[in-house]
């Protein structure tokens, strides 16, 4: 019986054109696209299947969602700055930008918590109607992905120094993959915001 080992490589693989880690990350993100794509499709089918559908701006808090959009766009900037700092061998700046990214993600969750709390106070639950069902499903799943990003980024923030000292190229590759995931999470929100709140 033979065993296949996928080794870590710093340089792009001659066949795929990218590193193995990046290829794995994109495969994972492709599965995420299918997950969110299925839910977006469900939203479209539910919405087009009825004669009347509520406008999100009448029932949801657009100012809070706008604030959250600003927070996530800013966090994508700090995430890429964190990776760029590593490429420039500036570990201190990397940690600063990554810490800001985590704080912004937590701020997003706090704002989302206020929004959910307001809805629950007014007895608006996923079981209330189809609109709230798809709203809570999409934003809830997105929120779980934000929490996942916080966990991964916090791990790299607090436990990344040793790997940076021993394998700097590998560590920079990991941060780039974490950055790809974080940008995907932000991109999902960029689509959720207009679809749920504005249309």
């Amino acid at each position: 019986m033979s065993t296949a080992v996928i080794r870590y490589i710093d340089k792009p693989h001659p066949v795929t054109g990218v590193t193995n880690a990046k290829l794995g990350t994109w495969c994972f993100l492709a599965s995420e696209v299918m997950l969110f794509g299925a839910l977006f499709s469900a939203y479209v089918l539910l919405r087009t299947g009825v004669s009347e559908w509520p406008h999100g701006s009448q029932f949801l808090n657009v100012p809070l969602a706008t604030l959250n959009t600003l927070i996530l766009i800013t966090s994508s900037v700090t995430m890429v700055m964190s990776w760029a700092s590593l490429m420039l061998k500036q570990f201190g700046k990397y940690r600063l930008y990554l810490a800001i990214t985590i704080l912004l993600a937590l701020a997003f969750l706090v704002v989302k918590g206020f929004e959910y709390g307001h809805k629950f106070e007014h007895h608006h639950f996923p079981s209330t109607n189809t609109f709230y069902a798809i709203y809570f499903t999409l934003t809830g799943l997105h929120g779980l992905h934000v929490i996942g990003g916080v966990v991964v980024n916090a791990y790299f923030l607090f436990f990344g120094k040793r790997m940076w000292e021993t394998h700097p190229e590998q560590f920079a590759g990991r941060i780039e993959c974490a950055g790809l995931y974080w940008h995907f999470v932000d991109l999902v929100w960029i689509f959720l915001f207009p679809v749920l709140y504005l249309l």
Binding site: W26, T69, S76, W83, E176, G179, H183, I190, P194, L198
Partner: peptide
């Protein structure tokens, strides 16, 4: 696609979102 390229794509989409929201907000007002 690298993080740099993905970031560029993300910001381009964000520019359209921000402009689109601005137009939506004026009409909503």
């Amino acid at each position: 696609m690298s993080l740099r390229a993905f970031h560029i794509l993300f910001i381009v989409i964000s520019v359209f979102l921000a402009a689109g929201f601005g137009v939506w907000a004026v009409r909503h007002y």
